[in-house]
Nucleic acid binder design. Structure first.
Lengths: 239, 239
DNA sequence: CGTATTATTGACTCCATTCAAAGATAGTGG
DNA sequence: CCACTATCTTTGAATGGAGTCAATAATACG
């Protein structure tokens, strides 16, 4: 392979996300082997699909830039957003059980991603000792996030919004972005589809959080004015 | 080891659940190797813990008989039941991410289980080629179940109950139990904690399903009179 | 038998939804 | 550049479904 070209390619070894993505727990040599099987040249526009619900298991994908949503549609035409994915996060685990994807993954904005193709998956687990464990960790993380959403589903509307903004803020911070000012990659409708609210309620609750001095909101731009205040809404409303 | 004793022990090779538990996708030899590391003599009473939230990752456990619940408690003293586990189902994946358990697992009745101890986990994945893939499948199944619960969290109370009973019925059927008559291992409060309802609403909705001729309910005994009717409540209420 | 736990049922309340209307924004083509 | 359309957002008023509070009944258990 031509070294000149190779030097300009982003691979796992020189990716800026290595500390939060799959390579985080791997040795230098393991990362090299991983890098060899990873395809990393895909770019999508908002609305384009990474995979469709029902597709044969495509592989495990890592978001490199931009963001995506995991979606399942019910028979009433309602869209349920199971998760919102940021750079460094892995998707595709939903396809491992029945060898077909249990939900769709859709780009929320211009988005780049890498891929461990399905036919490499088992092989890679055998060849690279640390990779199975690392994949289990990511899978477990996904599971824990789902469980957080289940807990949040039983809370009041204002608390759901507070927890959603906190979660975004925390995860953006981990990725080196500003935790206090960011753009929502979702419409009000999509936030509602994620949190189990109508778009009107989402709008009203964002307004309310702003009126209480916790955030500033202008369309999709969010500024967090009082992070601790946001946390207090979600936690310790005990008594 | 004494053959006489060994003959009386239940292990993976002679377990009746092998078709739905971990061994389902493994070769005969792989099952033997699995059997060697699995501890399978634990029995618990209702209310006893398999592991506590916050515990160091203990391992992956398989329910052998009885049932269990996965629970997380919030700071307001509310219990959230993330899942109900039946024989052949695996728990513990929540501990793989941070090497500590993210929820508690509690017996719902007299319950037996097997265990792949944490310190065997990585080793086993390396030695038995098929086991990692099989574990990923179970982990993925757990994830898909969580996502089903997220979808159900946005439905009306009656539909939540219908889908819960359907899910139990389907899973009991897979395990060779009657899908049309069974005992709920949960109290009304616990069903509420699982579905995001109050115990009063659970009681009322069970009553309502009975009045509509779909089930017969007497305390914890459930008889399903019209399985298709139950399904119709959850699905195709489109228009 | 008495106590604690669990379940049922009714009346009232409140929060999120629904329905409706208007305003803001982005994108397209003339 | 403006007009036009489609999409998204905000806001208000009315409705309804699940929660809350309360009382009673049934069951399990020591």
């Amino acid at each position: 392979m031509d070294n000149l070209i190779k030097d300009f390619q982003v691979n796992c070894e020189n990716c800026s996300l290595d500390a939060i993505c799959l390579p985080r727990g791997l040795s230098r040599q393991e990362v090299e082997e991983l890098s060899d099987v990873v395809k990393n040249d895909a770019v999508l526009q908002r609305g384009e699909y990474i995979y469709h619900q029902g597709d044969v298991f495509k592989g495990i994908m890592a978001i490199k830039s931009g963001s995506a949503k995991l979606v399942t549609n019910d028979d009433r035409g309602n869209e349920h957003i199971l998760n919102v994915l940021l750079p460094g996060e892995l998707i595709g685990f939903d396809g491992l059980n029945q060898n077909k994807h249990n939900c769709s993954a859709i780009a929320l904005e211009v988005m780049g991603f890498c891929e461990i193709p399905a036919d490499m998956f088992d092989d890679l687990c055998l060849k690279v000792p640390g990779i199975a464990r690392e994949l289990f960790k990511h899978s477990s993380e996904t599971l824990n996030e789902s469980q957080d959403l289940i807990v949040s589903s039983k809370r009041a509307a204002e608390e759901k919004l507070a927890m959603f903004l906190m979660s975004l803020s925390d995860r953006l911070k981990n990725r080196g972005f500003s935790p206090l000012a960011f753009n929502l990659p979702l419409t009000r409708q999509e936030m509602g589809d994620h949190l189990g609210l109508t778009l009107e309620t989402v709008s009203r609750m964002l307004q309310q959080l702003q009126n209480n001095g916790l955030i500033e909101v202008q369309k999709k731009q969010i500024k967090i004015k009082d992070l601790q205040g946001l946390r207090n809404i979600y936690f310790s409303k005990t008594n």
